[in-house]
Design a protein around this nucleic acid. Structure first.
Length: 425
DNA sequence: AGCCTTTGACCAGCG
DNA sequence: TCGCTGGTCAAAGGC
């Protein structure tokens, strides 16, 4: 039988550059106050950057401040954000910071059921054109969410979190160490249900709901087989698609639909994932969930999308840093012509549009480099050769990349969609 | 016994 | 019309 997407998908063969923290730098200060051993995720980096700037209280202020470059006064930056808010906004936090690394936040922060992106989406601070008054609770919640990312985040090239419409529980995020953050950790009813702090990748997404796998396919252009799950609750229309890497890590989860029922009782789930329930919800999660209560007021979103592919892909950072490489985040065989990718993007866009009741503006936070030559600690030395001022264009590329995943491996183009006895290694 | 996963086959949309 | 592709069905088997 044909190899699953090509034998080249072996993790050992895929060299994924990772980012390590500079021994001493501003970065170090970012982690102060956090758990001793916990390394923050990229979002933490971002949020920490925000917090390190006390004068920026609201997200809009953060944006304004971030937008302001030495050549662009904050007022102009804020105006630019106002003008482009509907298209998303980029943050340039590097203007006044001696950062010698960069983190690009792009694409996928899709809020799954329970996390109620509706709350976030309803938040004018995050998604309105004016980007006004991001409540501290939101900012804090976001920061908390970020801080809950696994420590391995720092060794990931880049964290891509995309927010779109969904009412699904927070998705687990897998990282190299098979640590998942339970989507339920962001659900409003978390307080009532004992939840794990971490779950392993054996379960694609223990979000508190019960899922039945009803299919699996090798999707063309995607590295890993995609599994199809249905919520086992009767008459619950929710489905999700999960892509896994060969080593079992979830690389992407796409939620479709909205649960029309409450979560099953924990005992039910404990049967399926007893170990998952053994974890002690750390204070971060607990607090985060309390924060999330503010966010979980509405749930109009229908699709959640989460991807860790860019985290796992060592190219993500560098390409983002180069500022024009989102288009390269294509599945194999599609990078050149882009047409199939366009099709795919349209399909996914359609999915979201058809199932969401609102127009979703994806947040896009970009931390750009400031120096011409940046040491990224990913083992390579990067030279910045360009920068675009047009946020709209950047965002549009971001929209594309949010729907595309970099495919780093060759895979057969012939029809081998069905996995026939291709057991996991 | 019930629920799950696996997997070959089928279906529908699209170019 | 045909082939490709993603999504789903459903039988079989496992736990």
């Amino acid at each position: 039988m044909a190899e699953n997407g090509g034998a080249a998908t072996s993790p050992a063969e895929v060299k994924r550059p990772s980012i390590s923290l500079p021994a001493k730098s501003v970065v170090e200060s970012l982690f102060r106050g956090g758990p001793a051993e916990a390394s923050p995720g990229p979002m933490t980096l971002a949020s920490s950057l925000f917090e390190a700037e006390p004068e920026y209280r609201s997200f809009s202020q953060l944006l304004a401040g971030a937008m302001a470059s030495p050549a662009q006064p904050p007022e102009e930056a804020a105006a630019a954000i106002d003008a482009r808010g509907k298209e998303g906004a980029s943050l340039n936090l590097g203007h006044s910071r001696p950062m010698n690394f960069s983190v690009v936040q792009s694409q996928l922060f899709m809020v799954p059921p329970g996390f109620s992106p509706g709350g976030l989406l309803d938040s004018p601070a995050l998604f309105s054109s004016n980007l006004v008054n991001l409540g501290n609770s939101h900012q804090h919640a976001l920061a908390e969410f970020s801080s809950s990312l696994p420590s391995s985040s720092l060794t990931q090239p880049v964290s891509t979190i995309n927010m779109a419409a969904s009412s699904q529980p927070m998705l687990p995020i897998t990282h190299g160490a098979n640590i998942l953050y339970p989507e339920s950790a962001f659900s409003s009813d978390f307080d009532q249900i004992s939840q794990p702090a971490t779950i392993v990748a054996d379960k694609p997404a223990d979000d508190g709901y019960n899922w039945r796998k009803y299919g699996q396919k090798q999707v063309k252009g995607c590295e890993y087989p995609r599994s199809y799950y249905k919520c086992t609750q009767v008459k619950c229309p929710v489905k999700k698609k999960v892509e896994r890497s060969v080593d079992g890590q979830v690389t992407e989860i796409i939620y479709m639909g909205q649960h029309n029922h409450d979560r099953p009782i924990p005992s039910r789930r404990s049967k399926e994932g007893g170990a998952e329930l053994n974890g002690n919800p750390d204070t971060n999660n607990s607090e985060l969930l309390r924060k999330d209560d503010h966010l979980n007021e509405t749930s109009n979103g229908m699709i959640g999308l989460l991807s860790t592919k860019e985290q796992q892909s060592g190219h993500g950072l560098s390409e983002h840093l180069e500022g024009s490489s989102d288009d390269e985040e294509l599945c194999d065989g599609e990078a050149e012509d882009g047409e199939p990718e366009h099709k795919r993007r349209n399909l996914e866009t359609r999915m979201i549009e058809s199932s969401s009741h609102r127009t979703v503006t994806e947040p896009r936070i970009i931390l750009q480099t400031t120096s011409e030559v940046d040491l990224l600690d990913d083992g390579y030395r990067w030279r910045k050769y360009g920068q675009k001022k047009e946020l709209l264009q950047v965002h549009e590329r971001g929209m594309q990349s949010s729907k595309t995943r970099r495919k780093g491996f060759d895979r057969p183009e012939s029809r081998h969609n069905d996995l026939r006895g291709e057991a996991q290694p």
